[in-house]
Simulated assay, not measured.
Amino acid sequence: MQGGAGGVRVARGITDGLEPRTWILGVTVLTGWHAAGAAGVGWGAFAAFFCGVVPMLWIRWGQRRGYWGDRHVRRREDRLIVLPGVIVSVVACIGGLVLLGGPREVTALVVAMLATVVAILAVTTRWKISVHTAVAAGAVAVLALAYGPGPLAAYVLVALVGWSRVRLRDHTPAQAVAGAGLGTAVAGAVFLALR
């Protein structure tokens, strides 16, 4: 892709536009639709709130107080604080889905998200794996399992996300690829087993 300042601007736009929250909001609503049509969209929105919106608010809260630098939480050490907070919200979502009788497919998705975040946290204790590519690839894997092979074309977007993270020097190529591999394997396997 482009070099110089133009390349950095493009990379920043991709990183910001295709951040984890974007993928989470999309995959929850689309999985809800697949599970139960219009009613499922409501369940997807419920999951999106706990898995996408609450974590975003948690990150912004810490950012405003100077606990971490920005919404992408670049420092590995800061992620060790942020990720457990995300896990609490995702666990609360699972509890709500179970207690309220949410669709099995939406619950399977959220459990897959939990497994992915726990795996990311485990790796993050030693190495800065890409959360961006993990979430993006996991979302594509889940959508392909739900809807068939068509969504696999979105791995092109996962590759662009990986490129942007490397171009911005937030990750090495190995960290971006490892994130995509982890997200695909963990989210895909857990969703397939539970749906």
Rank of each mutant, 00 (worst) to 15 (best):
P151A: 12
G148V: 06
V177D: 05
L168N: 03
V166H: 00
T172S: 14
A159G: 14
V166L: 06
S164R: 11
Y147G: 01
L152S: 13
P149W: 09
P149M: 08
Q175I: 03
P149H: 09
Y155V: 01
L168S: 02
P149D: 10
V166R: 03
V166Y: 08
G179D: 02
Y147S: 01
R169L: 08
G148L: 08
V177Y: 07
L145R: 13
V158P: 03
G179C: 06
G179A: 11
A180T: 07
W163C: 04
V177R: 02
A159K: 07
S164Q: 10
Y155A: 05
A153L: 14
D170N: 13
A178S: 14
W163K: 06
W163A: 10
L168R: 01
P151Q: 13
R169Y: 08
L157T: 02
A176P: 07
A153H: 10
V156C: 13
L160Q: 11
A144Q: 10
L168Y: 02
Y147Q: 06
L152P: 08
V156T: 13
L160K: 14
A180E: 10
L152M: 12
T172H: 09
L145C: 10
V156S: 14
T172N: 07
G150W: 13
A154C: 13
L145M: 15
T172K: 04
V156A: 15
V156F: 15
R167K: 15
S164Y: 12
G150M: 08
A146C: 11
R165W: 09
G179H: 07
G162I: 02
A174H: 00
R169S: 00
A159M: 15
A159F: 15
A180I: 11
Q175Y: 04
A153V: 14
P173A: 09
V158I: 14
V177G: 01
A176R: 04
R169I: 01
V158S: 12
L157D: 02
V156G: 11
T172C: 08
V158R: 14
Y147V: 03
L152Y: 13
L152D: 06
G162D: 04
A178P: 11
V166P: 01
Y147N: 05
P151V: 03
Y155W: 15
P149S: 08
A174P: 00
L160P: 02
V166I: 06
P149N: 13
A153G: 14
H171N: 07
T172V: 06
L168A: 04
Y155H: 08
P151L: 06
A180Y: 07
V166D: 02
L168Q: 00
A153I: 12
R167D: 03
Q175D: 10
L157Y: 01
A174L: 13
Y155F: 15
